[in-house]
Computed example of a mutant assay.
Amino acid sequence: MARTTNTSGVHWEVRKRNPLIPIGVAVVGLAALVFAFEIPHRHSVEDNLTDRTKVALTNAGIDADVSFVGRDGTVKVGSADEKDKARDLTLGVEGVRVVDVQAPPKVETPEVQPRQPLSVKLLVDGGKVTLTGTVPAEGDRAKIADAVKAAFGAENVQDELTVDAQRTSDDTDLAGLGGVAAALGKDTKAGVVDLTDRVITLTGSVASQDVKDKAEAAAKTAAKSGTVRNELVVGQAAAPEQVQTQLVALPTVEFENDSATLTAQGRAVVENAASILRANPAIRVSIEGHTDLTGTAAHNQTLSENRARTVLDTLVSLGIAPDRLSSRGFGESRPKVQGSDAAANAVNRRVEFIVQQ
């Protein structure tokens, strides 16, 4: 502010105007104009993008909630499977800058394993019976085991049946399988009663046509609406494929842990194999060892070879000619099922008897 005096002695004060004030007023006014223009314009852009995005998604069969702040969108879809497609479609709408696609977390549906039919094999050999296979329930296992024990005596029955609830039941009279074994009789060598998927197959060699007919009649009674295949032969050796069926019916040959030493159960199975081979003197067999995935590949290879050789030597000690037998090991290279859990290991750890044609 400046003080001024004229010639008459009158004085007054002159205030100097701040040059920034007009500029500030102009800026505020301009901002107000921009704000007044931008709000409805932005809302117009957001509404336009929202509408066009909804149309694009709806046309693609996607029901979604859409909103925009400026050119940045948020899209909420009902399924994780629609997420990627919704993102691509939204970004394809002209004017969209970015988009956040939201979806509920994807729920992994457990894989449902197909149910398998029950499978049961009865190996009848000189008055002794070995039960193998899988049934749906403990009650089913008891029906078979109790019927066979009643016919042959509990001390003559080796029960290796397992229970798996994933197996399907059918209308077969499971207790009636004991009657089929009884019809084969205690003199039958290496006879097999095989129930798989409602088909009962009889294989092996029997002493007479009467035994063959009685076994077939008992099988038809047990099968009910199922099928019976009578492949029993009278007074002669079984065909190679029949012998293979008999050998497959044997339980798993067990060994001491990480060893080629047979357990008592393992030796009993090898003795059953020897009975089958004695009843079929023309049959030659390859004994093949397999391991699970536990341990190194090199160790498993050696272990499988040693186990197969142990089985061969045991068969020879039981009277089977060495020139009818050969052995080899495959280690872990030929798993029967995939996986390394206890169940898979139990299946993959095995010795197989392969009939040579």
Rank of each mutant, 00 (worst) to 15 (best):
G70R: 09
V157D: 12
N156P: 03
F330S: 09
G24N: 04
P251M: 03
A207T: 11
K212Q: 11
F353Y: 14
A215G: 12
T53R: 02
G126T: 04
E254N: 13
T50C: 01
T109N: 12
P22I: 01
H41K: 04
P117G: 09
L91W: 01
I320Y: 01
T109Y: 06
T196H: 14
A175F: 08
P22L: 00
R141G: 14
S8C: 09
A36R: 05
Q116A: 12
F152T: 06
V34M: 11
V66F: 05
V180E: 13
P105L: 11
G339F: 10
R115Q: 14
A36Y: 08
E108M: 10
V233F: 01
V27G: 06
H299Y: 12
V355F: 09
D170W: 06
K143A: 15
P117L: 02
Q356Y: 01
T227S: 10
N156I: 03
G24K: 00
R307T: 03
N257Q: 11
T7L: 10
G126P: 04
R87L: 07
L30Q: 03
D292T: 09
V192P: 07
V316M: 04
V180R: 09
L195R: 02
A181K: 00
T7C: 03
V98E: 12
S225K: 02
A2L: 11
L89Y: 05
G139M: 00
T294P: 07
A215S: 12
